[in-house]
C-alpha cells in the first residue's frame, strides 16, 4: 500500500470510530440505541401490518426485520452523507486530505451499527426455529460487500453534487424516506406484489433485489445468485459514476464551499 492509500485507510478508521464514540458518549443506553430504533420501528410496523391490516405472510415479523435492518443502513447513510462535504467546508478549505473519507466514514460507521444488529436478528430467527446455517457465513459478508459498494457509489455521487446543488439534501431526504422506502419490498415481501410489477421493481430498484437477497439468505438459507444481478449492476454503475463525478468535482470543493 502506498503512503496516500495508507493514510486514507487510517483516516477512515479514525473517523469511523470517532463517530461511533461520539454517538454513544454520555448516553446511558449507548449501543442499545442502535438496536432500539430499528427494533421499535419493526415492532410498530409488525403490529400495524400484521395485526391491523392483516398482511398474509408467514413469519411476517422476521420477513420484515431481515429487510428492515439492511434498509436502515442504506437510508441512514444516504441521508447523513449527502451533506458530508457541504457540512465540512471549514476543514476542506484549510487542509488537504483525501476528502472521500468524509462520507465513507459515515457509511462504515452505519455499517458497523448494522453489523451489530445482525446477532439480534439471528437470535430472533433462532427463537422461531430458523437455526443458523453455514451458508450465512458466505452470504453475510457477500451481501454486506455488495451493499457497501452500492451505498458508497451513491453517496460519493450525491455528496459531490450537493456542494453545487444544495437542494439535493432535501431531495434525498424526501426521495429515500418517502418514495424509495415504499417502492422497495421492505414492509412487504416481493412475492405478494402482482407479477406485472415484479420485473419493473427488480430492474429499476437495486435495493429490491438486495433486501430480497437478505431474506433469501436468512429465511431460505440461500446465497443469492442470479437474482442479485440488478443490485450488482447498480453497485458497479454507481461505483463508476460516484468516483468519476467525485474526481471531476472535488477540485472545486474548496472554492465552492
Amino acid at each position: 500500500m502506498n503512503r496516500q492509500a495508507r493514510r486514507a485507510y487510517d483516516l477512515l478508521y479514525l473517523l469511523t470510530f470517532r463517530e461511533l464514540k461520539l454517538r454513544y458518549q454520555d448516553t446511558i443506553f449507548g449501543y442499545l440505541w442502535s438496536l432500539i430504533r430499528p427494533l421499535l420501528q419493526g415492532a410498530v410496523l409488525y403490529v400495524v401490518l400484521s395485526k391491523f391490516i392483516r398482511i398474509d405472510v408467514e413469519d411476517y415479523g422476521l420477513v420484515l426485520l431481515a429487510a428492515l435492518f439492511p434498509w436502515t443502513w442504506f437510508q441512514t447513510s444516504l441521508t447523513l452523507c449527502v451533506g458530508s462535504f457541504t457540512s465540512n467546508g471549514a476543514l476542506i478549505k484549510k487542509v488537504y486530505f483525501p476528502r472521500f473519507v468524509l462520507p465513507f466514514s459515515t457509511v462504515l460507521n452505519n455499517g458497523v451499527q448494522f453489523a451489530l444488529s445482525i446477532p439480534v436478528l439471528i437470535i430472533l430467527l433462532a427463537i422461531s426455529g430458523y437455526t443458523p446455517n453455514w451458508t450465512w457465513l458466505v452470504g453475510i459478508p457477500y451481501l454486506i460487500a455488495v451493499e457497501a459498494v452500492l451505498i458508497m457509489g451513491i453517496v460519493l455521487f450525491i455528496a459531490s453534487l450537493d456542494v453545487y446543488f444544495r437542494d439535493l439534501e432535501h431531495l434525498t431526504d424526501v426521495f429515500v424516506g418517502l418514495i424509495w422506502f415504499y417502492l422497495t419490498p421492505v414492509i412487504y415481501p416481493l412475492s405478494i406484489v402482482p407479477d406485472k410489477y415484479h420485473d419493473w421493481i427488480l430492474a429499476l430498484n437495486p435495493m429490491a433485489s438486495l433486501v430480497e437477497g437478505w431474506r433469501d439468505l436468512f429465511l431460505q438459507n440461500q446465497v443469492p445468485g442470479l437474482s442479485m444481478l440488478p443490485a450488482l449492476a447498480f453497485a458497479g454503475g454507481f461505483a463508476v459514476l460516484g468516483s468519476l463525478s467525485f474526481r471531476q468535482m472535488q477540485g472545486g470543493f474548496a472554492d465552492a464551499l
Partner: peptide, 30 residues
C-alpha cells in the same frame, strides 16, 4: 499546509485523540 491551527478538532473528544487524528489529517500515517 498550516493554514489554520487545530483544523478538525472536535470539542467532545480528548486532546490526545484529537492530536492523533489531526496528525494523520495533516500528513502522517497512523
Amino acid at each position: 499546509g498550516l493554514l489554520e491551527l487545530g483544523s478538525g478538532f472536535h470539542p467532545q473528544i480528548t486532546g490526545r485523540e484529537n492530536a492523533l487524528l489531526n496528525a494523520v489529517l495533516l500528513g502522517l500515517t497512523l
